[in-house]
Amino acid sequence: MRWFWKWYLWSEDWKVEGSFPYHLKKMVIIVAPHTHWKDFILGVAVRSAYRFTYVKFLGKQELFKPPFGFIFRWLGGTPVDRRNNNNLVEAVVQKFNDSESLVIALSPEGTRKKVEKLRTGFYHIARQAGVPIMMVGFDFKNHKVIFDEPFMTTENEAADFERITNFYRPIEGKIPEQGLMHF
């Protein structure tokens, strides 16, 4: 499949900017802007083509229902119930604590719709687990997948979120008006 995904990225003229930190055994990856279902295909393509298929992802539980739910599980997905407060942060932190190696990707918006602010679960997972956050941008305007340098959360949550929004603000998603440029 790696060669298929490499061909797909080449045929769609996607380029990668930055590099993936293969040396990190634990990390939370946030991928944005998430505005279209094609974001998932692009993520699978990059993950396979660049050989970091060990990266798991969190996705809405509706994706994991029959008849195609098994595909999302096979690809490394874990369903998330977004409607209930079910201690998801604590559960994922525990997974990090119990694992020697765990890299999880998710969308900081939590949806493909336009949001007025990012969700904070990813941030609290990284902070409580003591793992870095890496930002990845899907820039559909310039056909670039942008990897930023991983960073550790600080004592200043507002400054950390300013860093995150500054990274994503210029990146244009598949549906630009639903992106993060208004932050």
Results as ranks from 00 to 15, higher is better:
H36D: 13
V16W: 05
H143P: 08
E149W: 01
V115N: 06
N86Y: 04
N142L: 05
N87G: 08
T153G: 07
T165V: 14
W14L: 11
L24T: 06
N156F: 07
S107K: 04
P66D: 00
R169N: 03
L9H: 06
E116N: 15
P33L: 01
W3L: 08
E62L: 09
M135I: 01
D13R: 15
W5C: 10
I171Y: 01
F70D: 06
D81P: 06
E155G: 14
T120H: 13
W37Q: 11
F4H: 12
E149K: 12
P176I: 08
F167R: 03
F167V: 01
G110L: 05
D160E: 09
G59F: 10
G18Y: 13
D81W: 05
G137K: 02
T154V: 01
L118V: 08
V44W: 12
K26Q: 04
K95C: 06
I41S: 02
E157F: 11
I30P: 02
F122Q: 07
W14S: 05
H34F: 12
V103W: 00
E62T: 10
F52L: 05
I146Y: 05
F52N: 04
H34S: 00
E12S: 11
F64T: 02
K113T: 14
R51T: 07
W74E: 14
W74D: 01
R163K: 10
F64S: 01
N87C: 07
V93T: 02
I164N: 02
R83S: 13
K38R: 14
V131I: 08
H124Q: 03
K56R: 15
Q61S: 04
K144H: 06
T153H: 09
S48T: 15
F140S: 02
K38Q: 12
R83G: 10
R47K: 15
N86G: 10
T35C: 11
V46W: 09
F161M: 04
R119D: 10
Q61P: 02
R82P: 03
K117M: 11
A45K: 10
S48V: 13
K6W: 09
E116A: 15
E109H: 04
E17H: 01
F147R: 04
H182Q: 03
A159R: 13
Q128H: 06
V55E: 02
E109Y: 13
I41Y: 13
N86F: 06
E62C: 04
E149C: 13
Y54E: 10
W7Y: 13
L63S: 03
G69C: 03
A126G: 14
H124R: 08
R163D: 10
S11F: 12
F147P: 00
W7I: 09
L118I: 03
R119H: 14
Y22M: 08
G59H: 09
G130M: 02
I133A: 07
